[in-house]
């Protein structure tokens, strides 16, 4: 998981510039943790939506709201994971002007995680996966 996701994040960056920060995250299984957070939170939120909330009216809007909340939670979870990464904490401590900004790096990785969360949740909703079949009233939401 850690290796697989590291590749998915690295492709968004100039690796040469960010390699130290990536190494720090990779070393402490950071990408794996973020990956599990993306998957678990997306599925959890969708189960809450389809099984427990299962709204009857304004369904498309509420579904989209759940996707946004899911992304926000994933953003927060990534932030939390990365701010607990020892290597990144050290980099933040050693940060001075002209160096790669580790705070901004955390923000970027969390944003990308949120985007992946959105995509994962969307795929879970459009494919005939079990999560939608938990629902009575949203079995065909969004399609």
């Amino acid at each position: 998981m850690n290796e697989l996701l590291a590749g998915l994040y690295e492709s968004w960056f100039d690796y040469q510039t960010y390699q130290d920060l990536f190494r720090s995250v990779f070393k402490e299984q950071g990408f794996g943790s973020i990956g599990w957070a993306v998957i678990v939170l997306s599925i959890l939120l969708l189960i809450i939506f389809y099984k427990f909330w299962d709204p009857v009216q304004g369904q498309r809007k509420k579904w989209f709201l759940v996707l946004l909340v899911n992304s926000l939670l994933i953003f927060g979870a990534s932030y939390l994971i990365l701010y607990n990464n020892q290597g990144l904490i050290e980099a933040m401590g050693n940060y001075s002007e002209g160096m790669v900004n580790p705070h901004y790096f955390v923000f970027q990785i969390s944003s990308i995680s949120a985007l992946y969360g959105l995509v994962i949740a969307f795929i879970c909703c459009i494919l005939p996966l079990p999560v939608k079949f938990l629902s009575n009233d949203n079995k065909h939401n969004p399609f």
Partner: peptide, 13 residues
Amino acid sequence: EVLKDNKGGFSKG
């Protein structure tokens, strides 16, 4: 109209 818009099995299945 609410039923017709609903995305459950009755109207969309």
